[in-house]
Design a protein around this nucleic acid. Sequence first.
DNA 1: TTGAAAGCGCTACCAA
DNA 2: TTGGTAGCGCTTTCAA
Lengths: 340, 340
Amino acid sequence: MATTIRDVAEAAGVSAMAVSKVLHGTGATVRVSDETAKTIRRVAAELRYQPNRLARNFRQQKTNTIGLVFAHFARIGEYDGYFAALLNGVLTATFQSDFGLTICPELTESSSHGMINDGRFDGLLWCKPGFSEEGRESIQRSAMPIVMMHAPDGYGPSVPRFCCDNSQGLQLAIDHIVGLGHRKVAFVIDPYNHTTAEGRTRANAFHAAMAKHDLATTDSDVLFWSVACSELSEFMTRLDRHTALVVFSERHAVSLLRTADTLGINIPNELSIVGFDSSAICEATRPRLTAISQPIEQMAFDATKALISYIEAESFPSRSFIYPCGLDIRDSTACLPSRS
Amino acid sequence: MATTIRDVAEAAGVSAMAVSKVLHGTGATVRVSDETAKTIRRVAAELRYQPNRLARNFRQQKTNTIGLVFAHFARIGEYDGYFAALLNGVLTATFQSDFGLTICPELTESSSHGMINDGRFDGLLWCKPGFSEEGRESIQRSAMPIVMMHAPDGYGPSVPRFCCDNSQGLQLAIDHIVGLGHRKVAFVIDPYNHTTAEGRTRANAFHAAMAKHDLATTDSDVLFWSVACSELSEFMTRLDRHTALVVFSERHAVSLLRTADTLGINIPNELSIVGFDSSAICEATRPRLTAISQPIEQMAFDATKALISYIEAESFPSRSFIYPCGLDIRDSTACLPSRS
DNA sequence: TTGAAAGCGCTACCAA
DNA sequence: TTGGTAGCGCTTTCAA
């Protein structure tokens, strides 16, 4: 059997408490002399003592682990650059604070509430919340520290939020597009994302940004798009009125580029496209994709750090943190073609 | 305080054991009547009893969690499609088996050995092992079930391995390239990956595959490549002898496409490029990238399932599982240009 | 078919 | 500056 703290205590001729104090620094009331401490450390090393993490977790009812929750979990491939950036940010933060990270792929089942609330996590980083009834209830009932990403104000319960400034981001894109002379612009989104908080926010922001240029838009300027190729072609042929598209995600935008190529539509000369989430893939396409950027990795890092300090009760950030977007202008946008 | 099993027992007028048996199905020697069981379940629901996962972990010295270890952890962005596919496979498997997944970003520090061996994981999925001294020792000392991915036979300790058939994959690529008339082919890899088991295996496989066509290669046909742009240009200008490149990863291949574009080199008419790991990004580039594919998601799924069954002692797979590669021929390869 | 007792390894609390 | 005691919530073992 593995060496326990008591084995060490016995071998060193001290109490288990002294060992605990020396090796783990717990127990504020316990003082140990330097000499005793040295002996304890030596004996522990000799005995190859390995603290049992499970016992500590149990005793302290703390795991030093946070859960990364994807509500309405979709396959990760969909997120691509986004997910990598997110994970880099989260992992950097957890690693710095000696926290573990567990990925929670599902939360739609009713059983999930129990699974995330059974003590395995000290806190939750909730991404892309869809705010289903179950999700909402889960959050409300949970006593666990929670931080949300990509949930604009006004959606869901009152927890700290880390979100990009969708309005400002879309304004950047629209300013750029309109500055190039475009007047008929569409916002493209898939039906699922249009049900999410972020999807609705971006759609609204699109209308608002157009209005700032005194350009009227209607619901019919929000185009729904799905993955099926046949529909994609149909979709493109429906575009005769529009000369520019702002697309909910860069993945969708890349698909549109390919479809346009197939249909012989020249991007950007016949149609301008702007994506959301500027990532590596935007550099790989031809033409390179103009895209709105958000500092995902930084946001994920900050959100995780905030969650951890929340857990450790050092601070209680309860407000929204809004990150400004950028616009990476590449080659998929150009001046309005002169209509002959 | 939270409701405990004893609270439920008391309220139901039974012993804690009976509750444990009914709610968690443990304790083979205990029999409970249907009636009692129903009462217990009712009372537990009324009291909103939530089993304490930490206590169970502790008691059973089992966490139902596996660790996903990246030796020599690099930023995830580097892996892109690879990492997403990997994670999808692993998560599907863990989810099916009610296991949790924790990401371990670092293992190079000496302290890591303790961190992964302190009971928090029931097993380890070790990806991209670099086999440093520490890593090797870690594995050897650990009593934990371990499964490796991307570690060809002959590298590292004897644990179950899940690896693609690098030889066959490179043979596919070389057959294709040589079939197009190319005779001077180079293998491109970055210095770091050339130190990994998989990197060396692929380089060797390249030589072997060329030899099958009676085409002699030397070490100078393995070209080292680094990210710095200036070196990239230099690199391309060094290629006068070669008419085709087989590239260690698709990320590198995409960069080469861009550099070629900058330098005015026409792909595929002046230079053919084949990447390793056919992924979404290969479809997004122009020209689309011909690439060797490996079933990463399936491999990750199988590896995880094997690890879990290993943990649960249902089976002990101790052999290598080799997956055949495919070749997705796209637009970055073409017939040898006629030299004027 | 049921219960009682003991203890997993650690640390909070109190006593010396 | 130190040690003893108790107990976290659960399950294994043994007794009824």
